[in-house]
Structure formats: structure tokens, C-alpha cells
Design a protein around this nucleic acid. Sequence first.
DNA 1: AAACCTCCAAATGTAGGACATCTGGCTCCG
DNA 2: CGGAGCCAGATGTCCTACATTTGGAGGTTT
Lengths: 231, 231
Amino acid sequence: MEGLEAPQRTASLSAQLVDSLRAHIAAGRWPVGSRIPPEHTLVQELQVSRNTLREALRALVHLGLLEARAGDGTYVRASNELESVLVRRATAARGEDVFELRAILEEYAAGLAAVRRTSEDLAELRRLLDCADEVSSTEDMEAIAAVDGDFHRTLVRAGGNELLTDVYGYLGSALTSALGALPWNAEDQAEHARLHRQLVDAVEAGDETDARYLAASVVEVSRRAAGEADT
Amino acid sequence: MEGLEAPQRTASLSAQLVDSLRAHIAAGRWPVGSRIPPEHTLVQELQVSRNTLREALRALVHLGLLEARAGDGTYVRASNELESVLVRRATAARGEDVFELRAILEEYAAGLAAVRRTSEDLAELRRLLDCADEVSSTEDMEAIAAVDGDFHRTLVRAGGNELLTDVYGYLGSALTSALGALPWNAEDQAEHARLHRQLVDAVEAGDETDARYLAASVVEVSRRAAGEADT
DNA sequence: AAACCTCCAAATGTAGGACATCTGGCTCCG
DNA sequence: CGGAGCCAGATGTCCTACATTTGGAGGTTT
């Protein structure tokens, strides 16, 4: 008898709760940053015992989706678990490996962006270039880094591969946590900005090879800045 | 007063338990496939209430590290959570995005392998080429796919980036679950084998550009086989 | 008016006990 | 030998009770 499948074990109540609570968060019904209803309320609404609910909540806390604060409440920290798990894994990895992997993704995504970008993508990239120019004169390193991060994520997103965009973003989060905002000398900053402009030009022109080459150059400048920050 | 840090919230007992149980698994003290001690034993050893223990175990179940079977016991299913979380995420993504991301990683890793491979890596790749030749005459599609998977993972590992190797492997798991073993026509199989040999030659010669080009060609043949399998 | 202190209700954290349900292995019977 | 039944062991769910933490409200002091 081919084609028969082993029967699935019945999902426990707490496993079902995990799934439905997760779906609730993913659907945006409990947005990131919001406080979910207290346990006693959920116990009533869901008609389960408090222990069963706590088991489910505990799972979500460790997946990084929720944060429970005794005496205060339970807050939504993320809407998907890949971020916290990948950040945790990246944090335990060698920094070079993280940097290299992210660089690979960015370089390739830049090429995809040259092929797949929309006019909205382009407008956003141009806006971020202008924004970067504005903040670069303020010497506010965190603001500069934030705009830079937005630029790179927008570029990668324009490549049209959602999964790649996610993984790239979370690796970025891990690196930011590890390194913080890097200090740039004026020379590197100017070159960085110049390469960014050329990169957007290449994306606009649909030049995949150029876009990849330029993205790699941008990464190289970043690597230099990170290397100098270590000494 | 600069340099003061906000005090860390005290980790709850169950969160501490999650961490120590996870460390126990990661250290190989409870190997994958083994059955962990029953709850009442762990309650005694760890001197916590059963509820607290269950909260911790529930978290690990949902991280994909443990599998609890009522009436039977709790089994170790994985030693790290990135795999299950990434597989879950990849399963929810568009197949093209998964395929494309894995292809990107493989292409770049092949280039890195040309630079970083050891003589052991090469010997293993050669052995797998021979193995692939042997099984290809058996028409056992699952064995063929398994050797092929081993070959690709070995190649990527030879690139020397652990994180990349992990992500690549888990994406492969997701694709295998989704597609199963692909049927190959004899022509594609022969070309696939030829490209594999050329790829190992390029890696041995330290030719990064060739290795990347050939890896991309291998991926293209796979894509073709997957495309034909859809019709 | 602003800063500080105290109190308390609300919220999570932990423990213990009881019972329900499931499963694998053992024993018995045809 | 194969199948059925039984049962001890194991997880799943529920209930009750108490401990600990926290934010906000209200009151007092400067």
C-alpha cells in the first residue's frame, strides 16, 4: 500500500495556542510595541487554563516575539521569529562571517535591483541620498548610520526577493548591535556618498554588472571603516 | 555620571531553564534523536516545580529543538533553532525566492572555496564525484539526490564561512521538503555531472571566477530540472 | 510647580496537587 | 505466532494559592 501517510499526532492545546497567537501577531492585530491583553483576560477569552496559556506565551517569548514584564504586562517585540533567532545565531558567529555573508547578499541584490526596481524604489533611494547629505553635516553618527541602513535595506528590497531582504536586514541588525554606529573619517564618508550615488545611477540605468561592482565597492569602504574603528 | 547602564531585568527561572537546557543540547549531552529524562526526574534534579519546567520545555519544543510525545517522552529533534525557524520561514516564502537565495549563496561560496579549500575538502569532493557516478547508474533518485546534496554542502563548507554554510544547508532542507527528490532526464544528469567535475577542477586550481561561473551553471541545470518537474 | 515618597492594584512568576489522555511494552489467549 | 487487552509510565490540562514586581495615583515636602 503506497501513498499512505503516518497519522499526525494531535496537536496539543498549547501548541495550537502558540500557532493562533503567532498568527494574531503576524496579522498585525497585536502590533509590534503593543501590550497584549493580560493573562487572566486571555484565559477567559480563550477558555483555557492559565498554565496552558503560559506555556504558549513562554514559547513566544523565547521565539523573540513577546516580552513579558512581571508586574507590567506582555509586549509584542517582533512579528516574526526569524529575526531574533538569526540575530542570536549571527551574534554567536565570527564577525567576519556575518559581514561577508551580508556583503554577498547585498552585492547580488544590487544586481537584482538594477533589473527589477520600480520607479518608487528609485524615488525612495534618491530621497535617502538627499537625506544622507543633510545628516552628514550634523556629525550625528547615529543619524548618519540610520539613514545609511535605510538606504541599504531599500536597495536590497528593490531586488525583489523577500526572503533575501529579510535575512539581509536581520544580519544588519546583528552587526549594528555588535558594532554600533561606526565613526567615519570625512574622506571615507565622501567616497561612500559618491559610490552610493553612482550605485543608484547604475540601478536606474538597469546596469546589473555595474550595480554589483559598485555595491561591492561600497562594502569595501564599510569594511575599511570597521577595520579602522577596531584600532 | 556617564557609563551607567540600565539594570537588567532579572531573568525568570523558566528563562534560565530554557538557556541551560539549550546549552545541554548544544553541548551534545542530549544528542539529537535521544530521549531526555522524564519531567518528574528533571523536576527533582533541577529543584523546580513541574509547571516551571514545562514552560521551559514548551519554549524548546517550539524552537524546534525538542519534540514532546504524550505517553512516550520528550525527544531531541535538533541542536540549534535556526534550522527549524529558517525552514519554517522558507516554507512560507515564494519558492523562487528560496531557490534564488540558495543559488546566490552557492555561487559565492564556490568562489570562496576556490580560495580557501583544504586538501581534505578536495579529497572529499572527489570522493563524492565518484560516489555520484556509482549511484547514477542505479536509477535510485533518492540516493542520487542525497549524494548531490552532500556534494553541494561540502562545496559550500569549503568556502570557510560557517554562517553561510548553515543558512545554505537549511534552505536546502526547505527546498527538499517542498520538492522532494527531483527526477532527472539522462541528458541533464550527464551535464550536471560534467559541470560538477569542472567545478571541482576550478576549485582545485584556485580559480575563483571560474568556480563561480560553473556553480551558477550547475544551478541553472537544477533550475531547468525543477522547471520540467513542474510540468 | 517640581521632585520625591508611599501605597496598592494589577500583572507576571512559581509552586503543589489532581485528574485526563496517550503510548509502548508486556502478558495472555486463541 | 498474531492479536487483544492491560497497565505503568509519561505528557497534557486544570485548579488553587502565594510570591514578586511594577507603574501609576495620591500625598507631602522643598
